[in-house]
Design a protein around this nucleic acid. Structure first.
Lengths: 139, 139
DNA sequence: TCCCATCTACGACATTTGTCGTTGACATTG
DNA sequence: CAATGTCAACGACAAATGTCGTAGATGGGA
């Protein structure tokens, strides 16, 4: 089972992954267009293609070649990737203390009341869970 | 005046910055040692030196050359840098929604009750502050 | 059928990163 | 003073990244 030290996606790769997470499996053309319109990304078509190919090599995406226009799909979940990136940032810049990170994140943007409520709920959950053995999610 | 689009520090640079934030202004030797002991980093001395020099070029650190052993100091605050990195991650991987990031961060590590309390306090603060105009902590 | 559009593959290229080795200057100390 | 050690500077180098251009295959339409 994949102990997969998933290679940390680069910024460009992350952009493509975001598109795939949003749209689901897509052709290169579609991805390229999405990027162009959504993010005003003005790179050539072959650039997108090349990055996608590299990502396929790394196992970040899968490719369905049954048709002439290959169809790419994200091979890693958004959540998993986000977790990995958060962990990296945590270790790299915050000395492992989630609290500081959370503070920075929350101060970063005016958070809606609703979102604040959501977070509070999570805190509650974590607190009760803290008593009983924290179960399940392993790493 | 520099509205400084501070160049995003790389991972290696971040490590050095961490040392400087901890120790304050230091010589290359000191930084190198600190890295070796603290992080079991086993690179050559000149590697550390080179990175420091590059960082000086970029304005990430300052250098006092009045002595033979130059003394480097962080030129950017820990908080500011962390905020920048959080913002980057937010945009790049979370579509700008802090909530998800916070969730991931909290799920990442068993957080102590005390820390949870701290975060709750911050939430309270944000909530009340949300009513009144949240005022500019600028940089 | 023949031409044109589209798609993938391949290689080129500039840039950045992180890694050293070497060199020449400077200091310390015997 | 001379030997030894320390330091900054410089260049080299491999690897990764993001950027294209071009070539070759394939498919659709006039």
């Amino acid at each position: 089972m994949d102990r997969s030290p998933q290679p940390k996606p680069t910024d460009a790769e992350l952009e493509l992954l975001r598109v795939l997470w949003d749209r689901g499996p897509s052709t290169v053309r579609e991805i390229h267009e999405a990027l162009a319109t959504a993010v005003a990304k003005s790179t050539g078509y072959t650039t997108t293609l090349k990055i996608l190919q590299k990502m396929a090599d790394k196992g970040l995406v899968t490719r369905d070649e049954s048709r002439r226009s290959h169809i790419y799909a994200a091979a890693i979940e958004a959540e998993k990737t986000q977790r990995q990136l958060v962990r990296h940032l945590l270790q790299g810049a915050f000395g492992g203390s989630p609290t500081r990170l959370v503070m920075q994140a929350l101060s970063e943007k005016p958070t809606s009341a609703e979102e604040l409520r959501e977070i509070r709920a999570l805190l509650d959950e974590l607190e009760t869970k803290g008593k009983s053995k924290p179960k399940g999610q392993k790493s």
